[in-house]
Design a protein around this nucleic acid. Structure first.
Lengths: 207, 207
DNA sequence: TATAATCTTGACCAAATGGTCAGCTTTTAC
DNA sequence: GTAAAAGCTGACCATTTGGTCAAGATTATA
């Protein structure tokens, strides 16, 4: 492991920098974010950033790595032993929860993909693709057993991802339409209920 | 009208610049796009951009204005005289079609909102909000008549927008998962069918 | 054809930005 | 306690970028 030899100070400061960087990248994207902004947000002089990270791109990569590890741990509920209703309900709920607890992470991820995924393209084509392949088989299995209507599992994932992440990525638009300043817990709960019912019903899983 | 006094040359060159700019802004976002890139993509020297547009932001605003006029003309099918099945099918289809025919427009729009809609915030809070308010009433009406299950119309719009635009905005991710280079007409057709069935079924409208 | 209006373009500029570095301070290890 | 390692920072630099401008070329108008 690489984490072994890192001092307490280094660990703490790297975490602080990555937290600040995620926030700034979320607001401005990779090119729009400036090292000066990140430094200010982390409450350290700009030069100090370069003591802990070689370059702006190195910070960006580290932020993305954190986000990807978050993303991976989300599909646990989808395995054959579960029934589809519980599994999909939990999955949608977990995805929505991510939009609540880590909106900046979602925005950085969205921005990266929107610009062609120059940094995480390989991850998408390898790890993510295999993960979806495996989970799709589980859903196909449920369908074969008659527990769900026949929907293409991959397209179902695309829809779930889009519909849940939109509450983080495009919250500006949603707030504007709803006429509110920010999405509160109650609205996010309502959105979760709405989406769960809509999609489960769409998959032919009775409520 | 402002278009009256514009010469043929001016009209043609402005259109050419806006076409190039939309492409570059879609790839790189506002900050990431450079005037040099736009100029190269439009096959004119950089100085010439400034003869037709005051600044980079002026080009960006003009590109957004074009996109918004595209967006507005999309909700025609949703009015009381139609039955919900036809209306929603047409709406979803039209939205998906936009992702096929104008992916760059969708990406520029997505990027603008992802970064907090600094330029079109007012449009979202006024025009778009009122439009959705009106269309939501139509859907509420259908629900009151028992033609649909009771779904919150606004959240339904959020889901439709997200699920359709994801095929333009996040096509990199979708291509990676599907293991293809680009989405072809057949895949987009399948996605449209999938989404229509899923959402109509979710709204309690029999297929 | 004359001339005024529009269009084109290379050279140039000021500001912003990512990154470097030498020297200083603090922490760690023995 | 002391020396070495790790951490910190202001001053500085090269490059990029949006934008300006003056002078020349083309087009419209009479």
């Amino acid at each position: 492991m690489e984490g072994d030899s890192k001092s307490r100070i280094r660990l703490s400061n790297e975490a602080n920098i990555l937290r600040a960087a995620e926030h700034v990248f979320a607001r401005a994207g990779f090119v729009g974010a400036t090292m000066a902004e990140i430094a200010e947000c982390a409450h350290i002089p700009k030069s100090n950033l370069h003591y802990y990270f070689k370059s702006k791109k190195a910070i960006y990569r580290a932020v993305l790595a954190n986000i990807l590890s978050l993303w991976l741990a989300q599909t646990d509920s989808i395995h054959e032993d579960n029934d589809p209703r519980t599994a999909l309900t939990d999955y949608i709920r977990a995805k929505m929860q991510l939009s609540v607890t880590h909106p900046d992470a979602s925005r950085v991820f969205a921005n990266e993909i929107l610009h062609g995924a120059p940094e995480i393209g390989d991850y998408l084509r390898e790890d993510l693709r295999q993960l979806v392949e495996r989970k799709a088989e589980v859903i196909e299995h449920w369908i074969a057993q008659g527990k769900m209507m026949p929907v293409d599992p991959k397209y179902l994932f695309f829809t779930i991802w889009a519909a849940t992440q939109t509450y983080a990525d495009f919250d500006t638009q949603i707030c504007a339409v709803l006429g509110v300043q920010a999405l509160d817990a109650q609205q996010m709960h309502k959105a979760t209920e709405h989406l769960t019912e809509l999609l489960l019903c769409g998959c032919g899983i009775a409520h």
